[in-house]
Design a protein around this nucleic acid. Structure first.
Lengths: 210, 210
DNA sequence: GTCTATAGACCGATAGAC
DNA sequence: GTCTATCGGTCTATAGAC
């Protein structure tokens, strides 16, 4: 009963050798290799079944171990959800960091768009849904680091303007990029074409030369 | 809802000997009052906890009955999920119907934008997430009615053009509207302001006079 | 239509051997 | 670090009384 067939599990190819996710201001979020494999598996399953529809047994199966092995790395399921969400946030923050390092405002905005589009297209079939899951949204509503990253993105996109139009513009652009990659309208497009079109249209939306 | 519910999936076509009206082109999506209450409760819970994180007991509690009473209206949880998703789809289809009834192309496109924005803003805090839940997305990937409604929306937005740019434009616009309403950037805006800004920016994106 | 009661599976989580 | 084994709880779904 219960987990009777855990012994006979096919091993899945291991992903993502990169074990790290550190940052300047938000605190180091470094993981061991075993933890990184769990997070990678969890992100894929969260995207396919949602957080609430993903069990620890499914995560364990995905990487070919038992639940107990997963619990040796994370004390609770919530810790896995949080770690996975923060891993996604770290990728976003890396893009924002790089954009802010640009010498001019225009180039910074340009770099941000390129980075976000690349991130979205890269994960068009796997993750990317994750940051929209109700459970993850709940985790982030009080998450300082998340709020801060979002504010930085907003500033890069529309400057210091705090008009309604500016804020709605920024929200629309981010939603447009991250949501369009999964839309059935673009299901037939290859990654390069999709990326190019998204960048062009995003820059047009911000009245940039593209 | 794990992997063990294939039974309900095949039952899709066999619904409703039901009481009243059918739709012009689409499906008979009319439910009894008891079913409608279940669907309404389910949509709210799906938006807050995700489909996978919502149990039949939660739905039953929400409307003040027991699980058995819910099972008297729907044979499986999957049937509830499908009915809830199709209820949301019906609202979208109503907007598309109304837009297509406009005399000119420009007014049709205008009506579609107004309708979609109104729909998104109306459900900015409750539902609306629903159509993006992984489980619902899975239901709709093979759903003829859904595909058809999406094609009609695409045609209204960008005409008969089948260029990459046109399709990506349409996908971005829809994603922008439905995603922006939940974005933290616009959390402080009232509904009327948000609606006005979204419509203005959407029309600008399509190079319409705003 | 609604209830109580229950079956059987799966869930998150823990203990302890190797 | 991974395993086996298990606990108590919740899940979907059914049976049958009112």
């Amino acid at each position: 009963m219960g987990e009777g067939s855990e012994a006979a599990r096919a091993r899945v190819a291991a992903v993502s050798p990169a074990p790290v996710a550190a940052d300047a201001d938000g605190g180091p979020v470094v993981h061991r290799a075993a933890q990184a494999r769990i997070i990678a598996a969890a992100l894929g399953l969260f995207a396919r079944h949602g957080v609430g529809g993903t069990s620890l047994g499914m995560i364990a199966d995905e990487i070919g171990v038992t639940k107990a092995a997963v619990y040796h790395q994370f004390k609770t399921k919530d810790e896995i959800v949080l770690a996975a969400a923060e891993a996604e946030l770290a990728r976003l923050r890396a893009v924002v960091d790089e954009a802010e390092a640009q010498p001019t405002r225009k180039r910074a905005r340009d770099a941000l768009i390129t980075g976000i589009v690349a991130l979205a297209v890269e994960s068009r079939h796997s993750m990317g849904v994750v940051l929209r899951d109700p459970v993850i949204v709940g985790f982030f509503t009080d998450h300082r680091e998340f709020q801060h990253t979002m504010d930085r993105m907003c500033r890069l996109l529309v400057g210091d303007a705090t008009t309604h139009e500016a804020r709605v513009s920024a929200a629309m652009l981010i939603a447009a990029i991250s949501g369009a990659v999964m839309h059935p309208f673009v299901a037939g497009l290859d990654d390069a074409t999709l990326r190019a079109q998204l960048e062009q249209l995003a820059r047009r939306f911000l009245r940039l030369p593209g």
